[in-house]
Design a protein around this nucleic acid. Sequence first.
DNA 1: TGCAATGCATA
DNA 2: GTATGCATTGCAA
Length: 947
Amino acid sequence: MSDQKRLFLVDAYALIFRGYYAFIKNPRINSKGEDTSAIMGFMNSLLDVIKRERPDHLAVCFDKGGSVDRVEMYEEYKANRDETPEGIKTAIPYIHEILKAMHIPIMVKEGYEADDVIGTLSRQAEKEGYKVFMVTPDKDFAQLVTDNIFMYRPVFGGGYETWGIPEVQKKFEVTEPMQVIDFLGMMGDSSDNIPGLPGVGEKTAKKFLAQFGSMEGLLANTDQLKGKMKEKVEANGELGLLSKKLATIMLDVPVEFNAKNFELDHPDVEKVKQIFQDLEFRRLTDNFLKTFAADTTYDVAQTAEKKEAPKSPPKEQKSAGAGQFSLFGGEDVTTTETTSEYTRNTGKTTSHFYQSVASGMATKLFVKNLLNQTSVCFDTETTGLNPLTAELVGIAFSWETGKGFYVPFPEDREDAQLLIEELRPFFENENIEKIGQNLKYDIKVLAKYNVEVKGKLFDTMLAHYLINPDMRHNMDVLAETYLNYTPISITELIGKKGKNQLSMRDVPLDKQTEYAVEDADITLQLKEHFEKELGEANTQKLFNDIEVPLLRVLAAMELEGINLDKDFLNSLSEELNNDIANLEKKIYEAAGEEFNIASPKQLGVILFEKLKLVDKPKKTKTGQYSTAEDVLSYLAKDHDIIQNILDYRGLSKLKSTYVDALPLQVETSTGRVHTDYMQTVAATGRLSSNNPNLQNIPIRTERGRQVRKAFVPRNGDYTLLAADYSQIELRIIAALSEEETMIEAFKNGEDIHASTASRVFNVPISDVTREQRSNAKTVNFGIIYGVSAFGLSNQTTLSRSESKELIDTYYATYPKLRNYIQDQVDFARDNGYVQTVLGRRRYLKDINSRNAVVRGAAERNAVNAPIQGSAADIIKIAMINIHKKLNEGSYKTKMLLQVHDELVFDVYKPELEGLKNLIKTEMENAYQLSVPLDVDLDIGNNWLEAH
DNA sequence: TGCAATGCATA
DNA sequence: GTATGCATTGCAA
């Protein structure tokens, strides 16, 4: 790096706001009741910059009186801004005073914004041969970037990123930083109230820039646009040009860059100390003294550290960190292969032979041929997405790339049944492998026609889930990614969902054939591809021994459904209605007006502006008042209205999400609720449940848990049995880490949290207090989630340092646990993935990120994924084995639900005694660990009693 | 009508 | 601090 002089220009308000909101959760209030968050935040940033960069020239720039020119051009400019928070207004004089004492120049010009001052100064300094760093998080500054002018952006979680020309080009997809102005002018900026072109957002603006280069270029070439967009752009040319002007940072503010004045010299230490003392800053004083410790150090450091002047960060850093704070939605993380985008194949460019099999005679010949195959891909086309009600429209088959057949089905249900009978020998043939994408769906559809799909299965969606669990697994995406092929989209055939959407039945036969057989053909090709890619022995086993067999189990559970007591829920709904109405009345009374309590926005205004319950309301990152549970709970003891609001929220949630929603989900044809288990969404290997989600039925609160009473056995001859693993994740981590102390505790059947507390707090197990056990429990769970002292102190009453101490003691008690955690992180660093006991992998691309926040998240994943995933593996094995036993024994009892560590069964009473043992044994012995697994069984006339 | 943000239910 | 799904609001399209 050259000896070029470096000037740092600090955007004061931006950093003050940022600092203020950084402490918003926990504002700094001193003994005089002053909110010092903004001062603290700003000073931390400033000292941080000085410490890191040791600039030789530095100035801090402020707005004053807003931008006269811009308001003159457009009186709405920044008119939507909220009033500056009180805590910031009061901070400004202090900050000025501190800066003066530090001998740092304050640059302001009445009638100009800091942006303009910084812009002007940076250009002047550049001319004088300086390298300029604009310290601001505000993306608007990107327009000023040149070879010598950089943005120096603070990033969440600490650290900075430098934006030079390449970074700006990448972020905004422009060739010149100046085009950022056009970009902002086109898309507008709601925070500054810059209108922009109506109908143009981020995506369109980028497109226009790529095409026309500038706002003027766009306006001169509107003939190249079409439709509504053309009209809109043409009608709003003026507005566009005005927006561009508003977004342009001025470079001619009457200020002067004076090298001498801007030199960073020694602060008036005594004076600064005095101010800090008045404000009651202790840590900051230390920090300040260290930063400027002995003038000589500063001088030495200045030359020594200059070598590390900010430079364009290397590639990894950009991709690793940028998504976090990008205002443009993380587009940089999921870069897709673009190389072949324009040469992607479709059915039109690829030769194929797809044929429909319409006549009775043709069908007979076709089936004969089909039965001669050893491996066939098939895909059902139906009238809808719900397999319980969907009718077959046709079935496509393919066993050779580029070739396939389509068997259309008659609308008449009896005729359809006759046709499926012809195909039954194929589906029920044990020796023909069946290939498909999301076979669970097809299996369920066919089950409704009484056809069982037998033989080996290959599901391309499941295969890809194991190969790349973080990606999505739609067939369209897979085809594009792995085969460079774009299949006909379903919307092309039946239109967008909503009003005019057709049924597959309404599509002409030739189109149906093209579409359906293409899907089968593509799926077959994907299978060939994935078969090789499944590669590793572990993954193969996982696929063939776990996921594929499980697919049949899940299909059976979903088809079975669970009985729901609608009457009970209806009466519960009425009760809730009453209570909610009462609360509503009380809240409106206290507020003095009626408003929408469910709207956080309106609620915030009532609580914090009208009632002024707090001096310094906490705000969310979008600038709204935060009305989150923890914030309100904190206030609840002082204000009845808050407690009522919390109760109101709880009851409304309960009513709308469960009590009222569940009865609507009862399937009329079966009278039961059929959830859909997603086998390929959770990156750790867990299942997820939806339509409805039966994995999040309330249990913690008395009121909520009533909902469980509505889940009942199918009739009086049955009873519900819930079997759940006790502490399975802790047992797994104990076993994997070989931490003897913990293993012994489990072997002795101890209460693990009490046992942990007894060791950590060094008291006999009988003397462990509730609080000690509770804290131990929190750490135990924290370990599974990849603890940090910060997270722990948020969860407990402990301070950050107490939390740290607790964690240290914990690790001292269970040293091997600590080693295990470190080993997982190291393994992930070396290999890029971690894995479960069965070899299920989770890839962690961010594990070596240079951004500490991003990396930290990956490290926690590295710890958690093997634990959560292994538990998922184990219960999956148990499910497969139990399902098999129930089938083989022709039991009337059915497995109905899985809730991560729990299985729920509808048990035929005469089978109960025998099955209790069977289920417990199968679950506890699903996988052998060095720690025994323990399963609790409960029986009842509803899901609440069975707990 | 679709989407992001917010908030909250579970393991 | 991990992993999910869903109801609601309010804005953009």
